[in-house]
Every structure is written in structure tokens, then in C-alpha cells.
């Protein structure tokens, strides 16, 4: 049996490891072959994640058991008020939805896709400080798929990049490698938002000098590209700098979603094409 702890000359061992690493890098960045072994190993390493989540769950237990009763009462009242408000808004929403459907039918436009929402909890582990990613407790088991859009109660958070059996990885919109097609809510001007690598700042390049954009404009997802459904709030413009002699203006925006503070996120999934077909077909059969 080969013993890795045997005495060995450093150079030959390092050379071997060097070659293996380079091969792994190339294979992993060009193909998906290493995903299966990664999934198997990630399940085997679940105890480590469990142990790492103990301190924060103990902290949560303490705060929840030490909360005073009046505070709980206030929180409960607030939630109830909010519930009734939202409930009444939903009543209105249903009539609006019907009206919208009729109008779309009149215009012969295609029906807006319905999204299914799955609630997911963030894992209590500090995933990675060098990348803007979070780990959520839903995986292959819950039919999460790569490219799924992730939102919270305020706006867009990011998208699923990596799906493992029990959890999945979400890349945030502030990651420097992330780009998201958006449009300005006020006038429908379409553009793309890029992450910068710092939480709380996005950049909006490629807007030329005569674009109609100003501080305070809300950017919503435009649905182009097919990953994010349209209409979800993404960011608010917080700085517009026009520099003479430069082709594009410098625009930065602030994400609306609580990227670093939410404990729960929502995964949006498209309904199966088959059921969508059934919805379209049903009025005709009537």
C-alpha cells in the first residue's frame, strides 16, 4: 500500500502534484466531469458543516429564549398588521391579473409565465469570504436547477450556480463576474448591471451621454437572457457622473435586496411547459 507519509524526495512529489493540479484546473474549468466526485465528497463532508453551524445556532437559541414578552407582542402585532395589508392588496391583485390576461389576449400577446416559489434557508456557514456567494439549504433533492433566479422580499439577490444533493450555491449580483440585464422602471431603457466585488455597489456601464437616467431611478430585471423573470426590482441608481470626452457615462447603483442580511431567500422556478400549455389551451376548449 502506498503510504503518503513515507520519506520522499520533495521535488518529485511536488512535480507530480503540480501536474495533477494543472490537469484538474483545466478539466474543471472546461468540463463538468468533476462535479460527480465533488457531490459525493460534499455529502461526506456534511459533518464539518454541521459542526461549524453549532455556535451560531446556540447564539440564536439564546436570543430567542431571552426575548422579552412585550417585544414578542409588538412583533406579533406588526406582523398581523402587515399580513392584513398584504392580504387586501392580494385581493386587488387578482382582479388586476385577470384584467391583464384579458388585455394580453386582446393584443394577441403571449401569456406571462408563472413562477413557482420555493423558500430556502441560508446555511449557517461562512462559505467563502473571497467570492460573493451564499449557500442555501436546498439542493437536487428539492429540484433546484442551475441558473435559477433567487430573490428576497425586496428584490433580486442572484442566481444558482452550483447544485449539490443537499445544498446549492448562489452567486450574488455584486460578484464581479455577474451581469444582469435590467431596464429602468421609469422609461424602459434597457441596459446591463455588473457586480463590482463590494457589497452595496453595482456598476452600470455602456450608457452613453444622452441616456435618460438620473439618481433615484429604479432598475428592474428586464427578462432578457431568459434567466431572470422580468419586473423584479434590482437596484437604485445612486450616482451618475458625466465626464466630457468619454463615450460612456459612469453610473453606479445600490442593490435593493438585503444581500448580506437576509436569512431566507426565495427560489423562482419556471412552471413546466406542459402545464403552461394546459393553461393556454383551457380557454379554447371552453
Amino acid at each position: 500500500m502506498a503510504n503518503p507519509f513515507r520519506k520522499n524526495s520533495g521535488w518529485s512529489q511536488f512535480g507530480l502534484v503540480f501536474v495533477i493540479s494543472i490537469i484538474m484546473m483545466v478539466v474543471d474549468s472546461k468540463t463538468a466531469w468533476l462535479n460527480a466526485p465533488r457531490n459525493v465528497m460534499s455529502v461526506a463532508l456534511t459533518p464539518i458543516q454541521y459542526l461549524a453551524s453549532i455556535p451560531s445556532s446556540i447564539g440564536r437559541l439564546f436570543t430567542s429564549s431571552l426575548t422579552a414578552e412585550p417585544d414578542v407582542q409588538i412583533a406579533y402585532d406588526n406582523l398581523r398588521n402587515e399580513y392584513f395589508k398584504l392580504k387586501s392588496e392580494t385581493l386587488l391583485l387578482r382582479t388586476l391579473e385577470e384584467e391583464n390576461q384579458d388585455l394580453r389576449a386582446l393584443l394577441d400577446a403571449s401569456e406571462r409565465l408563472k413562477e413557482k416559489i420555493t423558500l430556502a434557508e441560508l446555511m449557517d456557514v461562512n462559505l467563502d469570504r473571497d467570492n460573493h456567494r451564499i449557500s442555501v439549504g436546498r439542493g437536487l433533492r428539492d429540484r433546484v436547477y442551475e441558473g435559477q433566479a433567487v430573490i428576497d422580499d425586496q428584490g433580486v439577490i442572484g442566481q444558482v450556480t452550483e447544485v449539490m444533493p443537499l445544498s446549492s450555491i448562489v452567486v450574488l449580483i455584486t460578484d464581479p463576474g455577474h451581469a444582469l440585464p435590467v431596464q429602468i422602471e421609469r422609461n424602459g431603457l434597457r441596459t446591463i448591471v455588473y457586480g463590482t466585488g463590494s457589497v452595496g455597489r453595482l456598476r452600470v456601464p455602456f450608457l452613453n451621454q444622452n441616456s435618460d437616467i438620473k439618481v433615484g431611478d429604479v432598475l428592474i430585471s428586464s427578462g432578457l437572457g431568459g434567466r431572470f423573470p422580468n419586473g423584479y426590482p434590482v437596484a437604485i441608481i445612486d450616482d451618475v457622473k458625466v465626464i466630457q470626452d468619454e463615450k460612456f457615462i459612469r453610473v453606479t447603483a445600490k442593490p435593493i435586496a438585503k444581500l448580506d442580511r437576509s436569512n431566507h431567500v426565495l427560489l423562482l422556478s419556471r412552471e413546466k411547459p406542459k402545464t403552461r400549455q394546459a393553461i393556454i389551451d383551457s380557454p379554447e376548449s371552453n
Binding site: 495533477i20 493540479s21 490537469i23 484546473m25 474543471d28 464539518i48 467570492n131 452550483e162 449539490m164 450555491i169
Partner: peptide, 9 residues
């Protein structure tokens, strides 16, 4: 594997 990063680096 824990960090779900690219292998090898």
C-alpha cells in the same frame, strides 16, 4: 469541496 470552488487551485 467545502468551498465549492474550482478544483486544483
Amino acid at each position: 469541496v467545502l468551498f465549492v470552488r474550482k478544483f486544483g487551485v
